[in-house]
Design a protein around this nucleic acid. Structure first.
Lengths: 168, 168
DNA sequence: TCATTTATGATGCTATACAGACTATATAGT
DNA sequence: ACTATATAGTCTGTATAGCATCATAAATGA
């Protein structure tokens, strides 16, 4: 594995174990700061946006699938959806084929709200990456996307502790 | 499980706004899952490790600098350090030049403990990236590092809400 | 000297996640 | 058909993390 091979790239980092975590945490923090600003006014903020976005773009068949996709615990999703429902943004529709399940769909207003916020979120995302060259940002985005899908595939479970056994 | 995502994978950025957040969140989640396992037994878990690592490798002059580096609120850092101190991992040493300040230093046992855990953390980090080619992982690491430093420079504040005024 | 700022610690509040119990429905085994 | 088990969703309680706030000590500057 990684030894003292500091021909890394920008400047020779002794690559302290844990730096990856610091880096990822810092990036996510920066993202959240910008994101929170961008989704101001959205019910339940960031998570509300994510739920609404997933509902519209992923069209999950029921709440469980929605929760798994976002890695949100089902009990959390309940009150997250409560907030969105009472804001008139989404609806819970009983699934005719399985009366235990409920499909979550966006209302017309919800879709409208989403597309309005998406513009702001896109700006925030661009801003986060504003310090990098276009091709770098693109590369980063592609690699992060791949890694994210890898992780999600390895652990589609809702709760982080549930399937922590193996990631590969 | 594998649905239509395959087509969207590498190129084509229909790029739903918010995907970057999902990706980053998922990567960080995967990291934390592995990390938590790797630092099992460490006082205060992940944060404890990060604090100890920063103390040893960054040698911050006082608690405030430490907190800023890790973007941890100073009141949080207090009890985090309390735990590490009572575990005999670090010590608070009064700064002779400023008697308000305390420098945090690792004990011999703490340094030993850190280097033991660092091996495990390095394995965990390698495991997270195990799905990628070496050069890809390297590129990703370099880009994330740059972005992280960019973010940290832009907002070195301790608390995320301080810089952006309000959380929801 | 006195006021202001800085470094740290202590306390209480709020939000949020997760575990576990509970209801309703579905599916499998007999 | 009948029971047993599994699943979807909700509700409740608890633990915890993080922040605001106040308190204390010491440095800085007027």
């Amino acid at each position: 594995m990684a030894e003292v091979d500091e021909a890394v790239e920008t400047h020779a980092q002794p690559a302290v174990p844990g730096d990856l975590g610091w880096n990822l945490g810092m990036v996510l923090r920066g993202y959240q700061v910008l994101f929170e600003d961008a989704v101001e006014g959205m019910p339940s903020g960031i998570r509300g946006y994510q739920v609404l976005s997933a509902v519209v773009h992923k069209d999950p068949p029921n709440q469980q699938a929605l929760g798994v996709h976002l890695a949100i615990d089902r009990t959390v999703l309940t009150y997250l959806l409560d907030a969105l429902v009472s804001a008139g943004v989404v609806e819970r529709v009983p699934d005719p084929t399985d009366r235990r399940a409920r499909k979550v769909i966006a209302t017309a207003g919800g879709r409208q709200m989403l597309s309005a916020y998406e513009k702001r979120v896109a700006v925030a995302e661009a801003e986060l990456l504003s310090g990098m060259a276009d091709d770098e940002a693109k590369t980063l985005g592609a690699l992060v996307t791949r890694l994210a899908h890898h992780v999600h595939r390895a652990d589609p479970g809702t709760s982080p502790c549930e399937a922590m056994d193996h990631l590969q």
